[in-house]
Design a protein around this nucleic acid. Structure first.
Lengths: 111, 111
DNA sequence: ACTGGTAGTCAGCAACACAGAGTAGAGGAG
DNA sequence: CTCCTCTACTCTGTGTTGCTGACTACCAGT
């Protein structure tokens, strides 16, 4: 991943994962794989796991251990109310930022 | 500023400042003031100055010292070719990220 | 002489994504 | 049976980044 994207993910990756969990519960390996398919090709596995630990400690998700057919047990994360609230805040911050930046993009070249 | 926004600015603030400089050259105090007016109310002054030092060391901007009528001399930064290239890269990364995230936003609630 | 606005610098901190190595379970190839 | 691969998670250390708070310095008005 370019440094550019790496730095940009700081602060947004958490929102991305919360949004993924809002659709349906998931476990770490699955989330990493899905995000990689969807274009975040070089996303580091360790990054996602660390993030999951973080949002668990903050109480944004509930965790349940589920046996896997093909390996060690999975830790399935599901978004709870606090997580939903946090996700709302994320969308609001994101919208604000995206608006300003698009404005700058349009502004460019004129003047 | 909420932590949310603070973390989100990591990686994007550089692009924002480059975009500001693409419109016209500016000095630190001016950039901070303008960004604050445009909604980044709690943006720390020190942050902008540090960022300017960084992009100068990377060769994205040229610097010229100009006397001020109302205080110490200003350091006026102007975007050069390398900076313009970097800004292009920023826009490309930003577009990519914004696309994925909007997709997640739309996807929410369905399924 | 003092305050307030202008303009920039610096040291220390916390949060985050990444790199890289390690631990484990299950299945298939040789 | 052993080795390898895929699955699944953990952990330590590192570099980049934005913030905090304090400091220097120049100028104008009270």
């Amino acid at each position: 991943m370019g440094n550019q994207m790496t730095e940009m993910l700081k602060g947004t990756l958490e929102g991305i994962v919360l949004a993924v969990l809002a659709v349906r519960p998931a476990y770490g390996y699955e989330i990493t794989a899905r995000l990689r398919e969807q274009g975040f090709a070089d996303l580091a596995e360790g990054t996602v796991y660390a993030l999951l630990v973080r949002i668990e400690q903050r109480g944004f998700v509930d965790v349940e251990k589920m046996p896997s057919e093909k390996g060690p047990p999975r830790k399935v994360y599901s978004l709870n109310q606090r997580g939903a609230d946090q996700l709302e805040e994320f969308w609001s911050s994101w919208s604000f930022l995206a608006e300003r930046i698009e404005q700058l993009h349009d502004h460019e070249g004129k003047e």
